[in-house]
Design a protein around this nucleic acid. Structure first.
Length: 403
RNA sequence: CGGGCUGGCGUAUGACGGUGGUACGACUGCUUUGGGAGCAGUUAGACUGGGUUCAACUCCCAGCAGCCCGACCA
C-alpha cells in the first residue's frame, strides 16, 4: 500500500475530546474514526489490524472444532421472550417508524438465536457435541461509553457456542477453549490472566474472564503474584495483601481489561428453548451448553494501551497493519520503487511512504505513529553505500543492509 | 441512569457585553528531504433553542453533544 494512495491521513494532534490512549493514537494514526460516542468506524489501517486479529481468532477457533457462521444483527422478539431477556435494558430496540412496539432488538448476544437454530438440527446424542461461532458487530446501549474502543455501544465480538450431551463433556471442551484463548491472546502479544468471575445475566454459576493487566482497565482483580490464581473483585473475598488460599502467596489488587470470557451455561437456554437430544435409550435430555466471547475490537484497543511509547503505537508483528514501513528520502524513487516491488513480490506486507511533498522528519514521525514492526529507509545516504537502512520499531539502533 | 466538567476553524489560544483575530494544522503552487522544512497564496469557527440587553462568543435558562466519576456491565 502506498501512503500517497491511502485516503486517510495522520493527525499531528489528537482530538481534544479523546483522553484514552488507545483512542488518541488510533485516531491520530488514521486507524479509526469516531462517529459517535462509543461508535467507531474502522479505517483501512485499523481494519487491517482487526482482520489480522480475526484471522488469529478463526485459526484457534477452528482448532477447537468451531464452525464459523454468521447470524443476524436483527433479533426478533420471539427469540428472547422464552428466556425473559427481551425486556432487559441492554440493547437497542429496532422497528419501523409506524410500529407501535419495536419488533426487534439489535443483537447484543446470540445464545437464543443459535439455540433455536440448533433445535432444528439436533435430536440425537449422535449429533453432539458441536460448536459454532461468528465474528460480528454487537450492539449494546451502554449507559456510558468510555475509554475509546474499550467500551462502546457497537463493537466487534467473536462469540462461540458449544453444545454437549452432559456436563462432563462441557467441562472437557471448556478446558480446550480456555487453552485456545490463551493462545489467541499470546499471539496478539498479550499475557492474559485467567480470572474467576460472576455470571451476570448469563448464568447463575461462576464464569471465567481473561484479563489483561492495565491501569486503564475498568475491572479490578485480585491476583496471586506467586501462582497466578485470580478472582474478579466483584466476587472475591480476598483483599489486597491477603494470603492466597491456593499456594500461600500474596494476593495483589490490580486493574485489568477484560478481553474475553467463557461461560458454562448448562441447560438454561436449551431448557427454555426446547433444545433436547435423545440418548442411547431414546430418553430425552436438554443439551448442555457453553458460550465463549472475545471482544475483538476491545482486544485491538488493549494492544495499543499496553504497547506504545511517546511516538506512537508499537504493533506486534502478528497483528501489525503492515510488516514493513518503507520510507524514501531525497526523491530516490527509482531505487525505492524497486525495493517496494521486491518486498511485495516476496509477500512482505509493506506500507510505502512514497510521498514526495513530506519532509524526512514527518515521514519518520508517521512511521513511529503507525507503528509497523520494521522501518526501511532508502536515501542518498544509504544508496551511496548501495544499501538500505533497517530499524525495528522497538529498538533505537539502525543497521544498513546491502542491496 | 445519577453527578461533575466542557462546548469558538482540525488543535491551541486572544478579544471589558460593542467590527471574531492570531499561531500551528489542512489545502494549492514552487523550492525542499535523515527527526514534524521554506516562501507565496488559500481555507475554515461561536452546539441548538429561548431569555436579559440598545447590543450576547461573552450573562441567564433549557435542550443537545463530548469527556470524566459513580451505578450498571459477556
Amino acid at each position: 500500500m502506498r501512503l500517497s494512495h491511502l485516503f486517510t491521513k495522520t493527525l499531528r494532534e489528537a482530538p481534544a475530546d479523546e483522553i484514552a490512549v488507545n483512542a488518541r493514537l488510533l485516531t491520530r494514526g488514521g486507524f479509526v474514526f469516531k462517529n459517535s460516542a462509543g461508535v467507531y468506524s474502522f479505517l483501512p489501517l485499523g481494519w487491517r489490524v482487526m482482520e489480522k486479529i480475526n484471522k488469529i481468532v478463526r485459526e484457534e477457533m477452528n482448532v477447537v472444532g468451531g464452525q464459523e457462521m454468521f447470524m443476524p444483527a436483527l433479533v426478533e422478539k420471539k427469540y428472547l421472550e422464552p428466556t425473559a431477556r427481551w425486556d432487559l435494558d441492554v440493547g437497542f430496540f429496532a422497528g419501523g417508524k409506524e410500529d407501535k412496539e419495536p419488533g426487534f432488538v439489535l443483537g447484543w448476544t446470540h445464545e437464543e438465536v443459535l439455540t433455536t437454530i440448533a433445535s432444528k438440527y439436533i435430536s440425537s446424542y449422535k449429533d453432539l457435541p458441536f460448536a459454532a461461532y461468528q465474528i460480528q458487530t454487537k450492539f449494546r446501549n451502554e449507559a456510558r461509553a468510555k475509554s475509546g474502543l474499550l467500551r462502546g455501544k457497537e463493537f466487534m465480538m467473536k462469540d462461540l457456542y458449544s453444545f454437549h450431551a452432559d456436563d462432563k463433556d462441557l467441562q472437557r471442551y471448556y478446558g480446550e477453549v480456555k487453552e485456545a484463548y490463551f493462545k489467541i491472546f499470546k499471539r496478539c502479544g498479550l499475557d492474559a490472566v485467567y480470572t474467576v468471575a460472576a455470571g451476570g445475566i448469563f448464568t447463575a454459576g461462576n464464569t471465567h474472564e481473561f484479563q489483561i493487566l492495565s491501569d486503564v482497565g475498568e475491572d479490578t482483580i485480585l491476583l496471586c503474584l506467586k501462582c497466578g490464581y485470580a478472582e474478579n473483585s466483584e466476587i472475591s473475598e480476598f483483599k489486597n495483601g491477603d494470603t492466597c488460599s491456593k499456594c500461600g502467596g500474596n494476593m495483589a489488587e490490580k486493574k485489568a481489561i477484560e478481553v474475553g470470557n467463557i461461560f458454562p451455561l448448562g441447560t438454561k437456554y436449551s431448557g427454555a428453548l426446547n433444545l433436547e437430544y435423545a440418548d442411547e435409550n431414546g430418553v430425552k435430555h436438554p443439551v448442555v451448553m457453553g458460550s465463549y466471547g472475545i471482544g475483538v475490537s476491545r482486544l485491538m484497543a488493549t494492544v495499543v494501551e499496553v504497547s506504545n511509547d511517546t511516538q506512537g503505537m508499537i504493533w506486534p508483528e502478528s497483528i501489525a497493519p503492515f510488516k514493513v514501513h518503507l520510507i524514501v528520502l531525497d526523491n530516490r524513487k527509482e531505487e525505492s520503487e524497486k525495493i517496494y516491488d521486491e518486498l511485495i513480490h516476496k509477500g512482505i506486507e509493506t506500507l510505502y511512504d512514497d510521498r514526495s511533498d513530506k519532509s524526512a522528519g514527518e515521514k519518520f514521525a508517521d512511521a513511529d505513529l503507525i507503528g509497523c514492526p520494521v522501518r526501511v529507509v532508502v536515501s542518498n545516504k544509504t544508496l551511496d553505500k548501495k544499501s538500505a537502512e533497517i530499524k525495528k520499531r522497538t529498538e533505537k539502533e539502525t543497521e544498513l543492509v546491502s542491496l
